[in-house]
């Protein structure tokens, strides 16, 4: 590395050689060892701009910003399609699902009536036996 390249790197990347491109640092260190006073002067000048830049603090997040952002994030069980449907109106989606259910149910009922007479159905309510008296008390 020659002096001109060293100065160009200081001008571009500042006075801290640790922040220079990794593949240039070793050659820079050699030059710094050979011409210490000159190198110190070049880096000192570049460091003045670094110091000024550090004085410009970034904005701080306003109260509640992080919570608002996180609240808009994905939720469990909402895949891509649910994520699409949700803001567009879950009510519309549910209404469509209900309508489809009623339509299918009505057709199945009609088909069942036309096929065979219904048979008695026994349904297990739980794994316990219940005794009912005539008053309906358990």
């Amino acid at each position: 590395m020659n002096a001109e390249r060293f100065e160009a790197l200081a001008e571009a990347f500042g006075g801290d050689v640790a922040r220079w491109p990794a593949d240039e640092r070793e050659a820079a260190a050699v030059l710094m060892a050979a011409r210490a006073d000159w190198a110190r002067s070049v880096l000192g000048l570049a460091g003045e701009v670094d110091t000024a830049l550090y004085a410009y603090a970034p904005p701080q997040a306003s109260v509640g910003l992080a919570d608002r952002i996180a609240a808009a994030g994905p939720r469990p069980g909402r895949g891509r399609w649910m994520g699409f449907l949700w803001p567009a109106g879950l009510g519309a989606g549910l209404a469509a699902a209900c309508a489809a259910g009623i339509f299918v149910g009505a057709h199945l009922s009609a088909a069942a009536v036309s096929a065979e007479p219904l048979e008695p159905v026994t349904m297990a309510v739980s794994d316990q036996d219940f005794d009912f008296d005539l008053d309906g008390e358990v």
Partner: peptide, 13 residues
């Protein structure tokens, strides 16, 4: 985040 882990969402923020 993609599976809706709220802790991950907060961590990403």
């Amino acid at each position: 985040v993609a599976v809706g882990d709220p802790a991950a969402t907060r961590a990403m923020v």
